[in-house]
Amino acid sequence: MRSRSLSLRVLGAALAALALTFPTMPTSAAAAPSDGSPGRGYIGFRLLEAQVVRRDDPRALKYIVDHLKPGTVIERRFEVANESGTGHEVKLYPGAAKIADNQFAFAEGRTPNELTRWTSVKPSALTLRPWEKAEAKVTIKVPDTARPGERYAVVWVESGAPPDARHNVGSIMRVGTRVYLDISDSGEYADFRIKKIIALRSKDGRPSVVAHVHNTGKRALDLRGKLRLSDGPGGLDAGAHPVTEGTTLPPGGSGTVRVDGLDRSLPAGPWTARLELESGMVRHSLSTRLTFPKPGGTSAAWITDSSNRPYWYAGAGLLALSGIVLLLFKPRSGRATCVNS
């Protein structure tokens, strides 16, 4: 199983606020020293199981994403790896998190919230020899009296390195995974709508595309995707370009995603722009004709008709089993008109 998890390096307490603001990380997750020195870091983390109905959900393979009824208990196994030639003492614990300014943000240290009070991690500490791996387990016990709604947390693995002869500053290294837990007696519903697409050129002539998105469901969304530009002037094809990741929309929230890195020499168009966005099992696309403006200007494509397919299923609380349930959604395109400004 490929490792799918989240990694970060925190050098001193001042850098703690940077962690877990990015939704995707390398498949080999590790907290590593920034100076490249061996033996002071490299703690890896990866989930070992996911809920059966989410085995085809890329978010559930690197985060703990679940929908439970009150009174449900779930467990998830994960692996901690010492990817260095020096032994490490590591601590394992849950920490509070929230969605703020359309980003997944975590609290400092062991700050609690409602979800962390339901969550336990065993063992709470590990001694890892050089290159050793060990398994641990996170358990979430939802009270019978839990109110409906989504909660957020982080399962952390922490290792500290004190100052030594080569390093004047000590460090704290943390690596972990996000937890998105929704509580409800009914089924789960997740969906979003692409409201409009805007083409821009900066004053120095760099083109980019911004999409405005509204979360119409009851689950948080980590948006990712790509934009393909084709059928340009003279039949040009500018290829596919990834959406800049990092946007997390809370239920009912709205925000934007960007496509940067387009070539400065890109002709104005018009182009056929196909935007494909997804969060877990929810996928939508939009095709429209789009023209890039002169430097400093914008060109907007407004959706006049779209076919959106939500992610909805009933049932919750299943532990990871050997079977796989495939939930297939075929994205459908909407239609749009362009308005230049």
Rank of each mutant, 00 (worst) to 15 (best):
V155D: 04
R283Q: 05
Y63N: 14
G176N: 02
K330V: 12
R224Y: 08
G253H: 01
H284Q: 12
S159K: 11
V257E: 00
K137F: 05
G315N: 13
V121A: 07
I140W: 13
A17P: 09
R274Y: 02
G297Y: 00
A30L: 15
V339E: 13
K218W: 14
R9M: 14
K133N: 10
D57R: 06
G253N: 00
A301E: 00
I43E: 09
A220F: 13
D305N: 08
V243R: 01
K294D: 07
Y63S: 11
R193K: 09
P123W: 10
T72V: 15
T216N: 14
R59P: 01
G261V: 03
H241R: 08
T291S: 04
R289V: 00
A96V: 09
R117Y: 03
D185H: 03
D101K: 12
D144Q: 14
A273W: 11
P250Y: 04
A211N: 02
D185V: 00
G297P: 00
Y189H: 07
P162W: 04
S254R: 06
W118M: 09
I172P: 01
K69R: 13
Y42K: 10
V53E: 14
I43K: 08
S28H: 12
G323H: 12
W302C: 01
W131F: 15
G239A: 06
R174A: 05
R224I: 14
L266H: 04
R283H: 05
E135S: 09
A134D: 07
A134V: 00
W156I: 07
R335D: 14
P270N: 05
G239H: 08
P26W: 10
K330P: 04
K330G: 04
A301D: 00
S202N: 01
S279D: 02
L48C: 11
G234V: 08
E245H: 02
L221T: 08
V169N: 06
L266Y: 01
R166L: 10
L128W: 04
N215C: 11
A314G: 15
A199C: 11
L20W: 11
G261K: 02
R9S: 11
T111G: 00
N82I: 05
T298Q: 00
R9N: 10
L47I: 12
V10S: 11
R40W: 13
A107Q: 04
S265G: 09
N113Q: 06
L229D: 11
L327V: 11
S202T: 14
L236R: 10
D191S: 06
D185S: 03
L327R: 13
P267G: 04
D101Y: 10
K133V: 06
D191E: 14
R76A: 09
G217S: 14
G12H: 06
P94E: 06
P207W: 03
A211I: 03
R274Q: 10
G296R: 00
G36D: 12
A14E: 15
K294I: 00
L249D: 01
L61A: 15
S171K: 06
V175I: 10
V138T: 08
P295R: 01
S279V: 02
W312R: 15
R2F: 08
V154W: 01
A153D: 03
A220E: 06
A19V: 12
P207H: 05
V257P: 01
D35N: 12
A105Y: 05
S202G: 04
V157L: 07
G205F: 05
P293S: 00
K98Q: 13
R54I: 09
